[in-house]
């Protein structure tokens, strides 16, 4: 009984914190200062990367599959959304649906060819797909206009505040999805795959099938973020979505927060804010310097803090409530 009480108390405490944070984020756009657009941009960029990191986490956290080309799903979502609107004159909703469809197919193909072989295949193939899409979007000038990229028609010009709320809603939904998957049959299945694939196989679980399902879910989530991205930024170039920079940022957000956790990326998003600030400050001088720093952060975190920032909080939880049961991350 004592354990239950502590658990409830912890749950109450953490949900109070979440609610407080949400209220602050909900009320924030109502403040009128000249700094507001700047702050909102920072937050929206962070939201985008939180969502992408959640989607990345489904693969890395649940399946042990490292997607080294996650920008591919994201960028394809953005590109197809805008292309459908420009070339086929369809509605936004339809455009988003079609991009989701394309990403599901892509994810299925990637999963089908790489998962059954060896884990590193998945990493390599996703990386290769991202590089392929980069060169395709650069070279296929007739359709993608090459490095100049595509611009969203002015029809869908949404107010920044709406976009802010949409992004915030996406974050809430994505975190909820990851938490739900964790508690669902699918989540249990995937975790059992990750921890002991041979055992899962011997129990008759079709491991490849579930991994492919996870890949598709993850790709669809990233694709939707891409659709949001094109609504927000209003233009897309190969260099802004299909480069390894994007994937790297996704991985850094996931890693700094805590790999495979639902709440980790929220903490990890701090790096996106720092990143935007540094880039604004350097303003194009010292090209490469941020990349060096991120590379270092990535490598050092894996070596010295493999469970991310969230492990600090979990540790604190344990020390404050003595009788708390072993807390699982996620």
């Amino acid at each position: 009984m004592i354990i239950m009480d502590d658990k409830k108390k912890n749950l109450l405490k953490s949900s109070l914190g979440v609610i407080a944070l949400l209220v602050v984020l909900l009320l924030l756009p109502l403040i009128q200062t000249s700094m507001m657009p700047f702050i909102m941009n920072l937050l929206i960029m962070s939201f985008i990367y939180i969502c992408l990191a959640e989607s990345w986490n489904i693969l890395a956290g649940f399946c042990g599959l490292l997607s080294m080309g996650h920008c591919a799903f994201f960028g394809l979502g953005a590109y197809i959304t805008v292309m459908v609107i420009i070339y086929f004159d369809m509605t936004l909703l339809l455009a988003i649906l079609i991009s989701v469809l394309f990403n599901s197919i892509l994810a299925y193909i990637i999963g089908a060819i790489s998962i059954r072989v060896k884990d590193i295949f998945f990493a390599m193939v996703t990386l290769a797909v991202a590089q392929l899409l980069f060169s395709l979007s650069m070279q296929w000038v007739d359709v993608t206009r090459g490095p100049r990229g595509l611009i969203m028609p002015p029809l869908y010009n949404l107010d920044r505040r709406y976009l802010y709320y949409i992004a915030l809603a996406m974050v809430v939904i994505y975190v909820a999805i990851v938490l739900l998957i964790r508690r669902s049959r699918l989540g249990t299945m995937l975790l059992s795959l990750r921890d002991n694939e041979i055992l899962a196989k011997s129990l008759g679980v079709n491991t490849s099938k579930w991994k492919i399902v996870a890949t598709i879910i993850s790709a669809v989530m990233a694709s939707l973020v891409g659709s949001f991205y094109i609504l927000y930024i209003r233009s897309v170039q190969p260099g802004s979505v299909f480069t390894f920079d994007v994937t790297m940022k996704i991985m850094i957000v996931a890693f700094i927060g805590g790999r495979g956790t639902a709440k980790g990326p929220i903490l990890g998003a701090i790096i996106i804010i720092i990143d935007e600030l540094i880039r604004g400050w350097l303003g194009g001088t010292y090209a490469g310097l941020p990349g060096i720093i991120y590379g270092l952060i990535l490598a050092l975190f894996v070596v010295f803090m493999p469970n991310g920032l969230i492990s600090i909080f979990n540790l604190k939880d344990k020390s404050t409530s003595r009788s708390a049961p072993k807390k699982e991350v996620i």
Partner: peptide, 16 residues
């Protein structure tokens, strides 16, 4: 991931 980080460091150091 670690090698990816190292790769980023080298690539960006070369850019710099």
């Amino acid at each position: 991931i670690i090698t990816m980080g190292i790769s980023l460091i080298i690539q960006n150091a070369a850019t710099l």
